[in-house]
């Protein structure tokens, strides 16, 4: 348990540092300097420059900021809304429950990337569309989690005791159910963040996500592929940062999962 906690702390610190750096050092991702086109990494440009002479480190940091912010907000909104709807399902009548449970199951029958692709093609591509799409894709995940885990908790003695003392539904949710669900919800949020980052990158890569000149992991990789032989750093830097952040979220999900088993 102690080892897991130590690892978790270490992971949170590393994730925090990696996530904060792009926000602390924003740089200028837009200014085009045509005399500095396709320069290799150097002191002046740590990650080199792209086809328009834009500083790649500023572009990669902007890409990280955009991708992480879109994923963070959409997953967090999905968590809040999913928890509210999940609780509503939990306290509904049996007949209504049957219908309400069917909707998230039906949505989840589609692979997340496919569903996101369908939704994003309905609106004008951009950051907002991407955020709304990811939120819609992930709400059912949290509804199911809250509903399933909540159902299991409802059978516990302390919940029954609280009910016997006539505790209100609101107090039951806020004092007993939500505290008990915080670790599974956090683990689910972390796993969904990982998927959201990947989906954002994939959609932007096919041109349906963030629009140029705003950088995101997907757009950076999209526009780097033509220069892969001539200037490989344009592709390697965003790809490496995407791998590191994804790996950290993957490890966080695993450790939080371990935490659930231990508790």
């Amino acid at each position: 348990m102690l080892r897991t906690e130590r690892k978790l702390k270490f992971l949170f610190v590393s994730l925090g540092i990696i996530v904060l750096i792009p926000f602390l050092f924003p740089g200028d991702p837009y200014t085009q300097r045509y005399t500095h086109r396709l320069q290799a990494p150097s002191r002046a440009h740590l990650f080199g420059t792209d086809e328009f002479g834009r500083d790649m480190i500023a572009r990669v940091f902007q890409g990280m900021r955009v991708s992480l912010l879109v994923s963070f907000f959409s997953c967090s909104v999905a968590l809040v809304l999913g928890s509210i709807f999940g609780m509503f399902v939990l306290f509904s009548s049996v007949r209504l429950q049957w219908i309400l449970r069917f909707i998230p199951t039906m949505i989840m029958a589609f692979p997340p990337i496919l569903l996101a692709l369908c939704l994003v093609s309905l609106w004008i591509p951009g950051v907002l569309t991407l955020g709304i799409t990811l939120t819609i894709v992930f709400i059912p995940v949290f509804i199911q989690l809250v509903d399933n885990e909540g159902n299991m908790l409802m059978g516990n003695t302390y919940i029954n005791a609280a009910k016997t003392f006539g505790i209100s539904r609101f107090s039951l949710v806020s004092w007993h159910l939500l505290p008990a669900l915080r670790i599974p919800l956090l683990a689910q949020w972390s796993s969904v963040m990982l998927i959201a980052i990947q989906i954002e990158a994939a959609l932007s890569f096919i041109g349906l996500g963030v629009q140029p000149p705003v950088a995101s992991w997907g757009t950076l990789l999209l526009y780097s592929r033509r220069y892969f032989i001539q200037a490989p750093w344009i592709a390697i830097m965003p790809a490496a940062s995407l791998c590191v952040v994804s790996l950290l979220f993957f490890m966080l999900t695993r450790l939080l999962g371990k935490g659930i088993r231990l508790t």
Binding site: Y30, T31, Q32, E51, F52, I124, P125, G207, Q211, P212, P213, R226
Partner: peptide
């Protein structure tokens, strides 16, 4: 993709430098 989108990015930056922020829609 290879030419008009590239040109659009250049126009956007040139206009931004001249004080006219514009957005690109593909």
């Amino acid at each position: 993709d290879s030419h008009h989108v590239r040109a659009a990015q250049m126009y956007q930056e040139m206009l931004r430098q001249a004080g006219l922020p514009v957005k690109i829609e593909l």
